[in-house]
């Protein structure tokens, strides 16, 4: 599902002529199989978020190759990456990233609108997914009227609405209490088992990392440690 070959990245900081190069990733290799849950742990500033953003197409790596679902995406322009993201990747963020002026249903519907799905089909799909994340009763609620767990479930529903084969989750439980966190992890497990969705989860929470088939750690911009069974 994800193949990363020798990906390196550095940030350029400061003004012109006084720039400082800050290296973040050094020759990362990673392969994630279809239907796998992989957790990526590491300290702050280790480069785990940078790697996720490279996989998500938000950042172009300084060097190296990224393939998603067999498609090399390195060097693509923003429009191509956006279209690819819409069709192949679902994103879950730490602070949910819901549009506050839209209801839960409207937020979930957004990828379908961008995809050009007809209205009737959209409504049907939104109802189904709301049922799946147990939020039917909150469809017309605005994000500010929902709890953190409910908001994250809306975000998950939005990420799943186009049935993407891959979900990238950036600290998905970072803003949740332990009970809600447990609920969310169960939901992730369920979706992985039922729908065969691949998850790449960034976290520094060991409990979250524990639900993964594989745990990877990034330290000083390099893959340092691998736990779990490597699926063939």
């Amino acid at each position: 599902m994800i193949t990363i070959k020798q990906v390196s990245h550095h940030y350029t900081m400061g003004k012109k002529a006084k720039e400082t190069i800050v290296p973040v990733l050094h020759g990362i290799d990673l392969h994630v199989e279809k239907g796998e849950i992989v957790s990526l742990i590491g300290k702050s500033g280790s480069g785990k978020s940078t790697l996720l953003h490279i996989i998500g197409g938000f950042i172009q790596p300084t060097s190296g190759q990224v393939e998603i679902n067999g498609t090399p995406i390195t060097g693509w322009n923003e429009g191509q990456l956006a279209d690819f993201r819409l069709q192949h990747i679902g994103y879950i963020f730490q602070n949910f990233q819901l549009i506050p002026s839209m209801t839960a249903a409207q937020n979930i519907e957004l990828p379908l609108i961008l995809n050009g799905t007809p209205k009737q089909k959209r409504q049907q799909k939104v109802e189904n997914i709301l049922r799946q994340v147990e939020l039917e009763a909150f469809s017309e609620h605005y994000p500010s009227e929902l709890s953190g767990g409910q908001q994250q479930r809306v975000a998950i529903a939005r990420a799943l609405i186009l049935d993407p084969p891959l979900i990238l989750a950036d600290e998905p439980t970072g803003s949740l209490d332990s009970d809600t966190e447990a609920e969310l992890l169960t939901l992730i497990r369920k979706l992985n088992k039922q729908n065969g969705i691949t998850f790449l989860i960034i976290t520094h929470d060991q409990e979250v990392a524990a639900i993964a088939d594989r745990q990877l750690e990034i330290r000083d911009g390099q893959m340092k440690k691998v736990k779990g069974v490597m699926p063939v």
Partner: peptide, 10 residues
């Protein structure tokens, strides 16, 4: 930003 993140074309 959110729209672009979930796949809105520029």
């Amino acid at each position: 930003g959110i729209m672009k993140a979930i796949g809105a074309n520029p």
